[in-house]
């Protein structure tokens, strides 16, 4: 960025960019502020910007009434569980495709991508029935399996693009140094790919955390994740705005933080390496 511009131009652009950015961010900011207001203040007209009486009671109320913690734990288990399971299946597969490619590797990758394109509604009914018959409906492990399957193509693709950047020479050197496959992967490949694996983990935790279709259709009270939990607030409106904001803030805050750290990788992950 060595372009020279006048200070006026720079100020103009800066103001413009900040206005746009704040407009886009305002719904989140508004929710965060409302979470600390009393219910009465939350729906007051005209509205207040900064909470007049700063209160934390919405948060405790949310926990008391609907067991926020339980849903958060479900979300953590599903998001982390499905991502770790996906990495366990994905790392060997990505190793194979990146370092021992065959003529069909490209086709296999494209086919894996194509499974991601299948609309969820296309298979909703059989999955629903299978889950019902296997008693997997409203279970955490059932949802974890589905989440693993829907994110596996992204995991493999991301790992594949990261592994491709590692020179094959180094893995061959490990083989010459007497390393069997297990040691080659554990002592050489994984440590070298740690940044890529971490990004993959982060992005997939985010995607699994925010996944709404399967968690809403396959779970209810017991195994419900935060997406299902928040959706259950759709009916009682009105008086609950502050509490709803508190619940929302709790649900999005951790992932927002993770997202800020992983924004660069997000591009690579969601475009399947097509934009870097």
């Amino acid at each position: 960025m060595a372009r020279k511009v006048s200070t006026q131009t720079r100020i103009g652009f800066t103001i413009g960019a900040w206005v746009v950015a704040l407009l886009l961010f305002s719904p989140i900011l508004w929710t965060a502020l409302t979470a600390f207001k009393t219910e009465a203040e939350a729906i007051a007209s005209p509205p207040t910007f900064w909470p007049q009486t700063f209160t934390l009671e919405n948060f405790s109320a949310v926990q008391e009434r609907s067991d926020y913690v339980k849903h958060a734990i479900n979300s953590i288990i599903v998001a982390l569980g499905s991502t770790l399971l996906g990495l366990a299946i994905g790392i060997p597969a990505a190793w194979a495709m990146a370092f021992a490619p065959t003529k069909r590797t490209k086709d296999v990758l494209m086919w894996m991508l194509s499974t991601k394109m299948m609309p969820a509604v296309g298979v909703l009914i059989p999955i629903y029935l299978i889950f019902r018959d296997l008693r997997l409906l409203d279970t955490v492990h059932g949802l974890t399996i589905i989440m693993t399957l829907i994110n596996l193509p992204i995991i493999i693709w991301m790992l594949y693009t990261y592994f491709k950047e590692i020179p094959v020479d180094i893995l061959e050197a490990a083989r010459m140094d007497g390393a069997e496959l297990w040691n080659e992967i554990v002592h050489v490949l994984v440590p070298m790919a740690i940044p890529g694996i971490a990004s993959t983990l982060l992005l997939n935790v985010i995607l699994a955390w925010n996944e709404a279709f399967w968690s809403i259709t396959l779970t209810s009270g017991r195994a419900g994740t935060l997406t299902a939990f928040i959706s259950s607030f759709s009916s009682p409106q009105g008086l609950f705005l502050a509490k709803l904001s508190a619940a929302s803030l709790l649900a999005i805050a951790p992932i927002l933080l993770m997202g800020w750290f992983s924004q660069k990788q997000l591009v690579r992950g969601l475009t399947f390496g097509a934009v870097k």
Partner: peptide
């Protein structure tokens, strides 16, 4: 700015919908 602009993407769909439904588009408040 990048962080502010990217943020909405990380908001889970039901929360996004509820924020808009109650905080912005509700005729009363």
């Amino acid at each position: 700015l990048r962080i502010l602009v990217i943020s909405p993407f990380f908001v889970m769909p039901p929360v996004a919908a509820l924020i808009w439904k109650n905080g912005f588009l509700h005729p009363g408040y």
